[in-house]
């Protein structure tokens, strides 16, 4: 044939190529390819596991945040109710204190008025007694009107009346 083309040699080359294809497929291509596929699959699986774990963690985080916000709301409610109760107690205590104070003041005022009245009454009684005694003395001593007056004032000046008042008081 032209160009030294030889069918037998072409077939020999083809046989060699098929042989090489089989050898390379079985000994090199397939094992390396399988290893790469297996590793890629493993990485894909790891990636999936990581994504799942991340999604779980995010879910947990959302739950936690929800719980935290609920607890904060509950806390705020409790604080508000406690504060309201405390305010009401405070007002009650203050009003009680006011009431007690006014009661004490009233009692003190009543006592003071009674004491005042008692002292006035006593003073009046004493004055009346002194006046009566003085009159009696004047009558008893029966002097002139001028002497009487003099002796009265003299006795007052000497403090007899005051002493008597103090002793009586």
């Amino acid at each position: 044939m032209p160009l030294n083309i030889d069918i037998q040699q072409i077939l020999l080359h083809l046989f060699n190529l098929v042989l090489l294809l089989s050898i390379l497929y079985l000994l090199l291509y397939k094992p390396v390819h399988d290893f790469m596929d297996k590793r890629a699959e493993e990485y894909k699986e790891r990636d999936k596991r990581t994504k799942d774990a991340l999604s779980d963690a995010e879910k947990l985080k959302a739950e936690y945040e929800e719980k935290v916000s609920a607890a904060e709301a509950e806390n705020a409610r409790t604080r508000a109710s406690i504060s309201a109760a405390a305010e009401s107690d405070r007002e009650k205590i203050i009003s009680d204190a006011h009431e007690k104070a006014s009661k004490i003041i009233d009692e003190a005022r009543d006592k003071a008025v009674a004491e005042h009245d008692r002292l006035i009454a006593r003073a009046q009684t004493e004055i009346a007694e002194y006046v009566s005694k003085a009159a009696e003395k004047i009558v008893m001593d029966s002097g002139t009107l001028e002497d009487d007056f003099d002796s009265f004032f003299e006795s007052v000046g000497k403090g007899d009346i005051a002493k008597k008042g103090q002793n009586n008081g």
């Binding site: 160009l3 030294n4 083309i5 040699q9 072409i10 077939l11 080359h13 190529l17």
Partner: peptide, 10 residues
Amino acid sequence: INGAISMGVF
């Protein structure tokens, strides 16, 4: 040429 033809034909 025979090797090249076999490669082309294959």
